[in-house]
């Protein structure tokens, strides 16, 4: 629908319009001609030579803006990722910034790079995923460019109007940006992952930028798991305080392994030390929207619901029949989780 919508062309974007047309004739064939005032810079998040799922969703949101999408890949050895990115659909150009100081995604170096790139190439939109990486960097860029940011968008209404949840998802705001440059972070679960195309977009060197080394990256401790990634898994099983111990989480892992699900947790379970911080689902943890979400021993506080209520099917297992989770659950089972979960695992094994 956005491909055919006629967008308002602000006078200050007219020169950009003309130059981007000359550089990207392919846009006509894709049917984006009417959105020609839009020119988007996508910040690519990557690790171990793989593009982060949040970036693939952000790219789909960027494509909805119309116009062309230029991807920025920075790192110590960004070449391999740049090649992957150049073959993602709707990417018309890849800018590559190679420097040791870009290795760990520090905002002190990324923000000047993005600001310098915007200033020299005149993008109308800057887009990133609303992941820890995007959340950390983008507001700093916005401040350097003196524009507001629209965080965690769930829909693109037009090139300047976006939809985003507020109050832990209990209200939905439609927001119009009156700044010349729109800075947007994208909720990953609200947009599909972008696919790839056969033809590779051109790679170019990114503009030079100041590289302050005021922050040293020391180390990271990443929790290793063979299970699917929580943010993108199609099935998620989460445990709450009622699990009573980290050892008891094993019954969730057994069930998760049976149906190839990721494991999440409520804040109460994380605070009690039953599960790792990075597994927290909710307003301040991960936002998930899997096909199936099984909430085990979770009461369903507002802050937890914020992170999972867009799941397609919600199952709740809780012995308190009045727990708020049952109000959103498609299927609720009032039972003791310590008997119901192993029974479920066993019956799914057959």
């Amino acid at each position: 629908m956005f491909a055919t919508r006629r967008l308002f062309v602000a006078p200050q974007f007219k020169p950009i319009l003309n130059s981007s047309f000359r550089n990207a004739p392919a846009l006509f064939t894709r049917g984006y001609a009417s959105a020609s005032d839009v020119s988007t810079l996508l910040l690519v998040e990557h690790k171990d030579n793989a593009v982060a799922p949040s970036t693939l969703s952000a790219l789909s949101a960027a494509a909805k803006l119309g116009g062309n999408v230029t991807a920025l890949v920075a790192g110590e050895n960004p070449e391999e990722v740049a090649n992957i990115v150049s073959k993602l659909e709707n990417v018309s150009k890849v800018l590559v910034a190679k420097d040791k100081l870009y290795e760990h995604g520090l905002p002190e170096t990324y923000a000047p790079l993005l600001a310098a790139t915007q200033k020299s190439l005149g993008f109308t939109h800057l887009v990133a995923g609303h992941s820890a990486f995007g959340k950390n960097i983008f507001p700093r860029v916005a401040a350097l460019l003196d524009v507001a940011q629209v965080s965690d968008i769930t829909a693109v209404e037009s090139a300047d109007t976006f939809v985003r949840p507020i109050y832990a998802g209990n209200a939905i705001a439609k927001v119009k940006s009156n700044d010349a440059i729109k800075i947007i972070t994208v909720r990953g679960t609200s947009f599909p992952a972008a696919g790839s195309q056969s033809e590779a977009a051109a790679n170019e060197q990114a503009p030079d930028a100041e590289k302050p080394d005021t922050v040293q990256w020391i180390k990271e401790e990443i929790s290793k798991s063979d299970r699917p990634d929580l943010s993108t898994a199609s099935r998620v099983i989460s445990g709450g305080r009622a699990l009573k111990s980290s050892d008891n989480f094993k019954i969730l892992y057994d069930l998760a392994d049976k149906i190839d699900a990721a494991v999440g947790a409520s804040r109460a379970a994380v605070d009690a030390g039953y599960a790792d911080n990075s597994l927290q689902v909710g307003q301040t943890g991960k936002i998930v929207a899997p096909q199936l979400y099984i909430a085990v021993g979770i009461s369903g506080a507002i802050q937890h619901l914020a992170g999972m209520k867009d799941s397609k099917v919600i199952v709740a297992i809780n012995k308190d029949a009045d727990a708020p989770i049952f109000q959103v659950a498609d299927y609720g089972l009032v039972a003791d989780l310590f008997t119901a979960v192993p029974e479920l695992t066993e019956k799914l094994s057959k």
């Binding site: 998802g169 209200a171 940006s177 009156n178 700044d179 919600i314 049952f326 659950a329 498609d330 019956k347």
Partner: peptide, 22 residues
Amino acid sequence: RLEVLEVSEPPKRSGGKKVESV
């Protein structure tokens, strides 16, 4: 710099069904 055009309720889920057994 941002204009709030509208604030609305999120879509309601039609949850609430209970099952009797595993």
